[in-house]
Design a protein around this nucleic acid. Structure first.
Lengths: 358, 358
DNA sequence: CATGTGCATGGATACGTTTTCAAGCATCTC
DNA sequence: GAGATGCTTGAAAACGTATCCATGCACATG
């Protein structure tokens, strides 16, 4: 019962036509109605499925796309991945997944693997910079960045409240921006959340509550967010209040705990991602800091459990699923249309983790 | 600058040898030391990377493996996926990802896609039953189930406290079990957590706190867990206390809320997964039920945010990452060794969401 | 010296598909 | 009726690799 799958040749023979005809019929080419019907019937009868291997070899490219995220344990990237998968499924394309762990070498290795596999499209939450991605692009890959830009890109992608899309259908075209914003060394389209507006809104909100010593807790890839934070709080920035962790939960906790201990005078914290938000809540609890009485907290990313905390966390929501979906759309459309970057709106969701300064 | 990638032919020419020799050198076949060195040097110089397309076509199979999970937004499946990716990376194999949404049709469709892609190995958290997986297996795929068995499998996979591995390195071989447990219609290896022991421990714990009316909140794929629950509470089971939701968060919330409202006399709840745990916390809060004063809660899955809740959630931890890693190991080793199923230990982590009955 | 053994080597083939090309045929146009 | 035009069709050539097989060579054995 171990019969190998039927090939196009089998179908051709059984239908009494040439393989070329079968190929044409199946890929929508022209054929006489009767031939078409016969081929279709035979194919169905033999349960024939064209082999992607053969096709890919012939056209020198695998369909499908790569997807690189730093960590699937981070709910936000789970949302992003779901978005990518949704779009890919509707296009019938496979997605090969890679988890970079925010590590340059792993990322480079994964790029190599895609190249080897003939996958020439990738949507990536980049960890490395030009040194990782320039080779990939030179090798002919279509790259779309999601959620972040490479670490060595300038962080000055501007956001203008009026030009940011309000719905999923509108979008802001980075291409229309002043030249300064196009100095990115890599000319790669990106799908980003409007970090600048999100951070600015959060900082203003905290300011409005009377907070003056506001800290920022960042992680890998939060360059644009920390830049926005600096801009929002205005000079001079108290550099002790801007701390960074690596991607791990341990490091995040250490950074949060260290921050609280070294600067007990801070009254509010903005975290650049949900893992850092989690760490901040944990560290605050451990140090007997009450939220929001002793310290106010705004977390980047709206995740389901933000509402479960007590108090529920005030967050800057970014549309993770949409980011993924749009990125997949871009990477699929590349070639036909010159893809353009997209900036999606963020939203400050006020729950209970912020209070007036005491 | 748009030169296409070097092929084996280019390498052969540049090295002054035949393509067969190059192929042998690169795949570890025999060759004279000097030839080998020359070929290697030329290959490195040309930045040659063997095309997986050509190789796959030749050997009529794509390397790599498929990975099907119900929902990447569920942290547990994120952990599982990370485990699979870790193993796959160390083997240098690509992973193509599919999100089934606990939907049979999507799952079947994804299987079809893998088949088409020539991916003949898949590790799946199955949604469908034999009707989905029998065809895949007959088509020659190597399947390994993770976290669950197909819905129409008998739920009697036994667990014996003594035979369950205590560490990651030990494992229980289902093959050594009495025939009754091998009536599974599909002879497919699986990597599971010891749901029965986990649920039993939780129920006993709640019993010890004085709880008598304990409810179970289940979702898709929780068949083995609910069976274990029934067994643990013993006959007669109050059927109103066993409720199910579909995979969505809305459905989970509705089920939890409905449960609390229809049976205000219940004093404890065990949820079959973290999404349901989240829903239970939310619903309880909405109904002004205090945890653990009014209702005790044990959630399946230890996720980072379980500790963030107040009170922190008492959970049944299962090693998501290990499950994924082991499953990937099994699917990679299949063929060389007849793979056997694995049962990994669970652990009741007592935090603050359970209290004595009032 | 003749024969056998072992190894390194390269030519040729096959994997399953798409696409090009020319041929066959019917219909239309002048 | 001859030529042009359009459509359908199948043979054949790639795509890049792994592997079978035959060849040639060096060396050991008789």
């Amino acid at each position: 019962m171990e019969s190998r799958r039927a090939t196009i040749k089998d179908v051709a023979e059984a239908a009494g036509v040439g393989v070329a005809t079968v190929s044409r019929v199946l890929s929508g080419g022209s054929a006489s109605p009767e031939t078409r019907e016969r081929v279709l019937a035979v194919a169905a009868h033999l349960d024939y499925r064209p082999s992607a291997l053969g096709r890919n070899l012939r056209q020198r490219r695998t369909g499908g796309m790569g997807l690189f995220v730093p960590d699937l344990t981070d709910t936000f990237y789970g949302q992003l991945a779901e978005g990518v998968l949704a779009c890919a499924r509707s296009a019938g394309e496979p997605v090969v997944l890679g988890s970079t762990g925010d590590d340059l070498e792993q990322e480079a290795e994964l790029v190599g693997m895609l190249l080897e596999q003939g996958v020439d499209r990738v949507i990536a939450v980049p960890s490395g910079g030009a040194e990782t991605w320039a080779p990939a692009i030179k090798a002919g890959m279509t790259v779309v960045f999601a959620d972040r830009l490479p670490s060595d890109a300038p962080f000055d992608v501007p956001s203008d409240r009026d030009s940011v899309s309000r719905g999923v259908s509108d979008l802001m075209l980075l291409d229309g921006l002043p030249p300064a914003s196009r100095t990115r060394p890599l000319d790669v389209p990106a799908v980003l959340a409007d970090d600048r507006a999100g951070i600015r809104t959060a900082v203003r909100y905290l300011r409005g509550l009377g907070h003056r010593r506001i800290a920022f807790l960042g992680g890998p890839g939060h360059g644009r967010r920390v830049a926005a934070f600096r801009e929002a709080v205005g000079a001079p920035v108290d550099e002790d209040l801007v701390v960074f962790a690596t991607g791990s939960r341990d490091s995040a906790y250490a950074a949060a705990s260290g921050l609280f201990q070294s600067r007990p005078d801070l009254t509010a914290v903005v975290t650049g991602g949900n893992v850092l938000g989690e760490a901040a809540v944990l560290a605050a609890r451990e140090l007997d800091l009450r939220v929001p009485r002793d310290v106010s907290l705004v977390m980047y990313d709206d995740v389901p459990w933000a509402e479960l905390c007590s108090p529920p966390l005030t967050v800057i929501a970014q549309p993770g699923r949409d980011i993924g979906y749009r990125a997949a759309e871009l990477v699929l459309r590349a070639g036909s249309r010159r893809p353009r970057s997209v900036l999606l709106p963020t939203e400050l969701i006020v729950r209970g983790s912020c209070g007036p300064r005491h």
